[in-house]
Structure formats: C-alpha cells, structure tokens
Nucleic acid binder design. Structure first.
Lengths: 149, 149
DNA sequence: TGCGTCATGTCAGCATCCTGACATAGTGTG
DNA sequence: CACACTATGTCAGGATGCTGACATGACGCA
C-alpha cells in the first residue's frame, strides 16, 4: 500500500488548487482597476457584512493569520477606507468599521467580484451550486476537524 | 443592479478559497517532516509523472509563473533531488528529471499527500468525487477561456 | 535573407503571507 | 490574592509568488 497520488487529472486536490488559482487570478484582474488586491477586497467585504469585527476575527474570516490581516488593515486604514478604534472598549480587540469611502469602493468591488463568481458558476443550476457548496464544506470539515478516527 | 456578493456562506468562491486553504494547510503539515513545501512537492509529483518537462511546462502544470518555478527548481536542484540538462537539446527549454534521491522522497511525499486527499474526500462516493471534479473543471473552464462571448 | 513574433530562461523588485516571539488584557482556579 | 491560560495586537525575519524586464533561440512570412 502507501500508494501515491495517481493521475493528477483524477485528483480532487489538484482540481481544487487549479480552480482556486483561476478564481484568484480572475478576481485580481477584475479588482486591479480599483487598486485593490484580493486580500484587501476580502477584508472590506467581510467588514461590510459584519461591521465592528476585530483584526483577529477578520483574519479568521478570510483564512489568513492575524499578522497578515494586520498588514492589510494598515494599508486600508492609510487609504482612509476604514477606521479602527483607538482604544479597546473591552479586552484588547479593536473594533473596525468602514468609512464612507470604504463603503463606496466596496460597492464597486463587490459588483465586480459578483460578476466573476457569476461567470464561474454560470453553467451550474441553483441546485448544482448548493451541491457544490455542500461538497466543498464537507471537504473542509473532513480536513480541519477530526484528527485520526 | 450591480448587486454585491451577498451572504458569504452562499458564495462558491468563498467556499473554494476556504477549501483550498484547508487543503494547503493539511498538505503543508503532512509534508513538513520531509522538509518539503507544497510547491516543491507539486513540482516533484508532476516531474515524476512526466519526466523531462521544462521549467515553463512545470510552471503551467502547477499553476505558478515561470519565475516562481525557477526558484523552486533551484532549491530542489541544490538538494540533489532533480537534474537539469546543461544545454538545451532544442530551443531554449531545459528538460528536467528526478534523481534517485528525488524519486525516493517523492514516494514518501506522494503517500502522505494521498492520505490527506483521502481524508478530505472520505465522505464522497466515487460517483460524487467524479461529479465534484467535473464541477471544478467547469468552473476553471468558465473563468479561463471565454472573455466575453 | 531579414524581420516580427513567440516561448523560454533568468534577474530584479515588490507584495503577500507565514512562523516565531513578546507584551498586554481578560478569565479561571487554587 | 497569585498563578496559569487564552486571546489579541504588534514587531521581526524569512519564504513564496507575482509583475516587469531583458536576452536568447526557434519559427513564420515577406
């Protein structure tokens, strides 16, 4: 046993990586006119949907480390797209909110990204989309949670 | 119009990114004992299945740029895991091949990665796996090929 | 033959993201 | 109260990947 990976064309992992790269590339190209990176957009989008999140919460929501999110936040704050509380109202977490400029650029970016995602899933019916979502969620759960058995 | 992305939990792109990150993290953890990064493993795996590929072909096969692959090849060559032809037998492409040491470490790495992928897709039947593969391939095709009609 | 185009290898610079580490604030436990 | 533990923000260093650029070799076309 201890068989290898086998034909790459039959590997879910290979296809997953390919799809993720294709999506990231398409988003990057679409967002470039706005001067936003995918990471910056992800941060804005999450913050737009859930105002007041802290840096650590934003990091978990965008699947990066606190340190990476910290750098992203510094850039966005310098551009005036978001504001961070100067002092922590509780604990050490500093709540973050979009500024008016941030909301405006997010609206544009969100439309662009929605178009990209729409193009990506155009060939899928609503039911197929839900199925794909469920499959991906299952893969995530299988990888992150259970450690042996 | 120009609606935004909407609820992230219903976004295929969000789930795709999450799954890709989870897979990469799991592979990274599994390969760390061997001293291999995911990029290095990807290169070795592709080279093992298709010996003699050039750097540019390896780059396309692992979804990175030629420049990134160049750096990966330098590291693997220095470790004695692969050999590159000194001169180009045709054109400028330098064919690359695994050394014996490369084949040995690839065998171990491939087993580890296969186990990770197996864990990821354990909940899926063979038919569901094919369906997921087809869906992902469809997403890639929809994003990469057609530029407006 | 000469020229334009393309693919490849390579160098330089920049952005992103990671691990490791440290200080601080809250919480639980003896 | 003292101590351990966790969560958060932040700094430092290194690894990785990208864009831009340049030179070289192969090919097609006039």
């Amino acid at each position: 046993m201890t068989q290898g990976v086998g034909d790459l064309d039959l590997s879910v992992g290979y296809a997953l990586k390919q799809a993720a790269v294709a999506l990231r590339t398409a988003m990057d190209a679409g967002l470039r006119p706005l001067g936003l990176s995918v990471s910056q957009y992800s941060c804005l989008e999450l913050l737009g949907q859930r105002p007041g999140l802290s840096a650590a919460e934003l990091a978990r929501g965008t699947f990066v480390t606190r340190q990476s999110m910290h750098a992203v936040l510094l850039g966005l704050e310098e551009r005036g797209l978001l504001e961070r509380a100067a002092a922590a109202p509780q604990g050490r977490a500093l709540p973050t909110q979009l500024t008016q400029a941030g909301r405006e650029i997010l609206a544009q970016a969100s439309g662009i990204v929605a178009a990209v995602e729409g193009r990506m899933t155009a060939a899928l019916s609503a039911a197929e989309k839900r199925r794909l979502l469920a499959d991906l969620a299952g893969c995530v759960a299988a990888l992150s949670g259970d450690r042996e058995e």
